[in-house]
């Protein structure tokens, strides 16, 4: 959920930067710097303890999603942006010279190429965000780490619990990682190197 919002947020930010939308462009770059240069834990505390102070009631889960989206959005934006920048501007000109509108040029020519360039960074970000969920335990959200600590508290089986923790993270993340490299290979086969 948080990651999905992060992808959307990142996409919108990248588009704003690509088209150099006035004012919004500034807002986006401030956001990106702010979110990339502060740790997730700090961002979470900010949302979890800060928002209620200004009268916004939240729960741990919403805070988790918001924190992940806030952090992930900027990383995703950078991934998309590098993809968009990798498409040569003369490709755009070539599409325009065929009478395509700006929207058509983006949808049929630039975006498909940009996405296949940004896939590696994109998958790396997803994995990075999944791992970052381990700090959620700090705001008492039931993530893997929190559960593991819980179990250690209950049964005093520290070694076993921590070992299982590693195994579970691998079970969740390895398939995503493998899917990522498969996708990357297919896209590389289908495009580029003109």
């Amino acid at each position: 959920m948080g990651i999905t919002i992060a992808i959307l947020l990142g996409f919108i930010c990248a588009m704003i930067q690509y088209y150099k939308v006035p004012i919004l462009k500034r807002v986006v770059s401030v956001y990106i710097e702010l979110s990339r240069n502060t740790p997730l834990l700090v961002q979470l505390f900010f949302i979890y303890y800060g928002l209620p102070k200004i009268g916004i009631q939240t729960n741990a889960e919403i805070c988790g999603i918001a924190g992940l989206a806030f952090l992930g959005g900027s990383y995703m934006a950078e991934a998309f942006r590098s993809g968009l920048e990798a498409v040569d501007s003369i490709q755009t000109e070539s599409a325009l010279s065929l009478g395509m509108s700006n929207y058509q040029t983006m949808a049929y020519v630039v975006l498909p190429q940009a996405i296949s360039v940004s896939i590696p960074a994109f998958m790396a970000n997803i994995i990075f965000l999944m791992k970052e969920t381990s700090v959620f335990s700090a705001i008492s959200l039931m993530d893997l780490m929190f559960t593991a600590k819980d179990l250690i508290g209950l049964y005093y089986k520290t070694t076993e619990s921590l070992f299982l923790l590693v195994v579970f993270y691998l079970i969740i993340l390895l398939p995503i990682s493998i899917l990522g490299s498969l996708l990357e290979r297919r896209l590389r086969h289908a495009g580029f190197g003109s």
Binding site: A95, S97, L98, S101
Partner: peptide, 19 residues
């Protein structure tokens, strides 16, 4: 865009869409 449809352009670097 309408006018550009009536003008065909071929570039030095081909600019086929690689995907």
């Amino acid at each position: 865009a309408n006018l550009r449809q009536k003008i065909g352009m071929v570039f030095q670097s081909y600019e086929l869409f690689p995907h």
